[in-house]
């Protein structure tokens, strides 16, 4: 111990930040825009997450849904599902909350440059993906085709309808939405997200696919991509686990020898294949 040189860190001190905007996206999801104090920049990569805390209500990992190009402000899109998120949904503009991070690896955007990108997003999985979509669209000329596949259970669960409208109008974006359980007003496609994959025409060797969604979705999307002959090396997944610390200590997010909070949440598919208990 005496001869080890390292800089020890206070890992659990949150930065008290302020909510600058709140937007109700669906019945259960809200988008919060956050400002760190004194115009500090979060300095995140698409796909990373932060640990959000509210005193008395605990802490939870929440992925960042805005692109770094939005700095110094950033967005968190939150489903009201637990102790912390329930309280978060009751906060308003000007309320404070604690932020630690950013944590995790995020997407290696430089490896994606020049490639076609296929975003596969199930449900709330659109939130972390949106940080990457926004980044790609902000640097549109660096990338090839942009194909977004989005599936939700019902039309009322569709997130980011404003952005979706913009994407629909954007000639450089190909967007497909499929609904599992449509209502009478739904005129679009019906079915689980995997049904959107077979009809696609892809230059698979030059296509990067990202998959983010609920745990049950991964296996089926991977099978569908395999059917399209998308090489495994071109596939990236973001995995959800219940990180308690975000700093590779508490053990909750561990898959085999891997801490999702450190080596993930974004994983290259060949790596995920080596892991058991991953998807």
């Amino acid at each position: 111990m005496e001869n080890l040189i390292f800089e020890k860190k206070d890992l659990y001190n949150p930065i008290i930040s302020t909510i600058t905007n709140v937007e109700q996206l669906t019945d259960t999801e809200k988008r919060f825009e956050i400002a760190l104090p004194e115009n500090q920049i979060l300095n995140h990569k698409p796909g990373q997450f932060v640990q959000v805390s509210i005193f008395g209500f605990g802490e939870a990992p929440i992925s960042i849904s805005s692109s770094p190009t939005k700095s110094p402000l950033f967005d968190l899109t939150v489903r009201n599902a637990g102790r912390l998120t329930d309280k978060m949904h009751r906060l308003t503009v000007g309320s404070q909350l604690g932020v630690r991070g950013p944590f995790g690896n995020g997407f290696e955007v430089n490896n994606f440059k020049g490639k076609d990108i296929l975003f596969v997003c199930g449900g709330i999985g659109l939130a972390p993906t949106k940080s990457l979509i926004d980044y790609v669209l902000a640097n549109r000329n660096d990338f090839g085709r942009v194909v977004i596949l989005y599936g939700t259970k019902s039309p009322s669960e569709i997130l980011f309808s404003d952005e979706i409208e913009k994407w629909k109008k954007d000639k450089s974006v190909e967007l497909e939405i499929s609904i599992d359980r449509p209502d009478e007003n739904w005129k679009g496609k019906v079915g689980v997200i995997t049904t959107l994959i077979p009809p696609l025409k892809l230059d698979v060797a030059n296509t990067i696919a990202t998959i983010v969604g609920p745990p049950v979705m991964y296996k089926f999307v991977l099978m569908a991509l395999k059917g399209k002959r998308v090489p495994d090396e071109n596939i990236y997944l973001s995995l959800e686990r219940r990180m308690k610390c975000g700093v590779g200590k508490c053990g909750h997010c561990q898959i085999n020898d891997t801490y999702v909070c450190q080596d993930g949440p974004v994983f290259h598919y060949p790596r995920v294949k080596e892991l058991k208990e991953a998807v």
Binding site: F6, L11, V247, G248, K249
Partner: peptide, 18 residues
């Protein structure tokens, strides 16, 4: 334990007590 708490992000709570 030293290894576990130093690796990655060295944690002050543990290391201060050490």
């Amino acid at each position: 334990l030293d290894y576990s708490f130093i690796t990655g992000l060295p944690e002050s709570n543990y290391l201060t007590r050490r």
